[in-house]
């Protein structure tokens, strides 16, 4: 799988490149800023773009802006945005601009190489990967203002969070040490409680959950 990286810190750029190459990805370009990233993407048309949010010259949100632009120009290109912190707004913007193939993760997650690579594959395959931090933020917020979310059992809330992170039923089952059947039962109860329509497609499921959490 061909990847273009956008990361201004040299050491991290190398580290990330190594992780990706060890994981079987082919890093075709590693850009130092948003402009270079745009050019590299246009030149190589990779399968996956991984970019930092904060990059030169202004060190604000140009990485995210670049990612959103890439999504618009290449709707089929998978984009994963990395950051040192999580913002609900960024998650919403990324999800709104996509129909899957999008990820928003803390940089620190790179170190958990296995999970990180799995998330990348998930995204590249059309799924979604949202960082547990930003999902927790949204679930906590929804619990404060939304009775339906508050009334879910703790276990259901855990499942809801994992659904929002973009996990498939199999991964949720593995993570919570449950059977896949139990997970399916939990999800259908959650759907009932929140009045969501059941959907097998993992990204549409994330979108529905995220939309629900955003509006609550």
């Amino acid at each position: 799988m061909r990847v273009v990286i956008g990361e201004d810190e040299t050491l991290l750029r190398h580290g990330l490149t190594l992780v990706l190459e060890d994981g079987g990805f082919e890093v075709v370009a590693a850009a130092k800023d948003a402009q270079e990233l745009g050019a590299a993407v246009a030149e190589h048309l990779p399968d996956l773009v991984i970019t930092d949010i904060r990059m030169p010259p202004s060190h604000s949100d140009e990485g995210l802006v670049a990612a959103l632009a890439i999504r618009r120009q290449h709707p089929d290109m998978a984009v994963v945005v990395l950051s040192q912190h999580m913002q609900r707004r960024y998650a919403s913007e990324l999800l709104a601009a996509s129909n899957g193939k999008v990820g928003y993760l803390l940089k620190q997650r790179i170190a958990d190489v296995e999970t990180f690579l799995a998330d990348l594959h998930e995204v590249a395959a059309g799924g979604t990967a949202l960082d547990p931090d930003v999902v927790a933020l949204m679930v906590a917020r929804a619990k404060r203002s939304d009775g339906a979310v508050r009334n879910l059992t703790p276990r259901q809330q855990e499942v809801l969070a994992l659904m929002a992170e973009g996990r498939s039923n199999a991964r949720i089952a593995a993570e919570l040490f449950l059977s896949e059947k139990a997970v399916v039962q939990h999800t259908s109860r959650i759907y009932d409680s929140l009045n969501l329509t059941l959907d097998g497609d993992s990204h549409r499921r994330v979108l529905a959950v995220m939309r629900y959490l955003s509006h609550s």
Binding site: G15, Q108, V113
Partner: peptide
């Protein structure tokens, strides 16, 4: 520091 912690964690995991 934040970037170094990412790299250190990566090293540890490797």
């Amino acid at each position: 520091l934040q970037m170094h912690l990412v790299l250190l964690a990566l090293e540890a995991q490797k």
